[in-house]
Computed example of a mutant assay.
Amino acid sequence: MDIIKCKVLLTAVDAGSFSAAATILGYTPSGVTRIINALEKEIGFAILMRSHKGVKITKDGAQMLPLLRKLVHFHEQTEQLGAQIRGLDVGNLTIGTFYSIAACWLPEIIKAFQSDYPGIKVHTMEGANSDLLHWFEEHRIDCCFFSEYPVEGDWIPLKRDRLVVWLPQDHPKADLSVFPIEEINGAPFIETLPDCNTDIERFLREKKLRPDIRFTTIDNYTTYSMVAAGLGISLNKELMSVNWSGNVAIKPLDPPYYITLGIALPSLHNASPATKKFIAYAQKVIQNKYGEKM
């Protein structure tokens, strides 16, 4: 099975249309169509359903998709290892990440990594926990910055981050040094990324807390701005709070609650050379940044 055809197919599936895949790959839409038609003929059944709105995977195609992703993944690993043996450092690396880590950690990590390995292209996919788990299970990402969570694979801890509450500066509890978690019950609340299995959702379930969810957003900064406007309180990781300033009081919880952030991947032993190098750089940057080693 031709690996190029498989890559074109996966790009079309992920992009949602032949024209979008053509733009990403530098092909013409008709070229993408011919390649996928040839692959479907080779396999013996339709993989994609076409419509004027784009493409969707067929039922038979959905069964093939995980194997095709693995095929492309292991082909990439083979190419990287061959390049390493020849004394070259080339390849592609796809990183899954939280929005907070993408903003606060990744620029510094990628800068250090690219200075030594400019031939390795780094792609990022940002999302919530539910997105990251889905991409991880589908082998769409090589590794994933993630909160500690039961996944099939290896887990490399990087840093413990505490949960903090965001309060309007005129909130009655804004002058306290810590915020009692029982005060969350019934409080007007702004939730970021609802129904995405976030760390905040898991914390509220674990502690059996029921805030009065007045508003929901899909962006942390929007939530922060709504808290500053006095529309409610919210919760977030401390990491997400360090780069912004505004009319928001940021308080640790009482009792404190910590979340371990790290990197998940299917197998460190079987990871590509580029993935192993990238993880080593991430560990070094985070250790230098915070002065802690886990």
Rank of each mutant, 00 (worst) to 15 (best):
M1G: 04
T58P: 07
D195V: 03
M226G: 08
V13K: 05
R160K: 13
A229K: 15
G230M: 06
A128I: 07
K173R: 11
K70I: 05
F189C: 01
V178E: 08
S30F: 08
A38L: 10
I184E: 00
Y257K: 05
A22L: 03
I24Q: 08
K207N: 13
A83Y: 02
A174M: 01
A102K: 12
S245N: 10
P150K: 13
K276H: 09
G186C: 01
T97M: 01
K173W: 15
P150R: 12
M49S: 12
N129R: 12
Q114S: 13
V285A: 02
F74T: 04
D60W: 15
E108Y: 09
L209K: 06
T97H: 00
E40D: 12
G87C: 04
L268E: 10
G16H: 03
G119H: 01
M125N: 14
P66I: 03
G44A: 10
S130L: 15
P255M: 11
H134N: 13
P252L: 03
L239Y: 06
H134L: 08
K276W: 05
K41M: 09
T94F: 01
I233E: 03
C144A: 13
R202L: 05
W166I: 05
T97P: 01
M49K: 14
F98S: 00
L71K: 11
N236Q: 09
N243V: 08
H123W: 09
K293I: 15
I286W: 02
I3N: 09
L81S: 09
N243D: 14
R50M: 07
E201G: 04
T275L: 07
L176S: 07
P118R: 02
P256C: 04
F278Q: 03
V32H: 00
Y149I: 10
S225N: 12
Y290Q: 06
K293S: 12
G87A: 00
E183M: 06
N220W: 14
A271C: 07
I181K: 03
I259V: 07
K237Q: 09
E126P: 10
L81Q: 13
I184G: 01
K293E: 09
S115A: 12
T78Q: 13
K159G: 02
S100P: 01
W166G: 11
L239A: 04
E138V: 04
G54L: 02
P180C: 06
E191Q: 15
L204W: 02
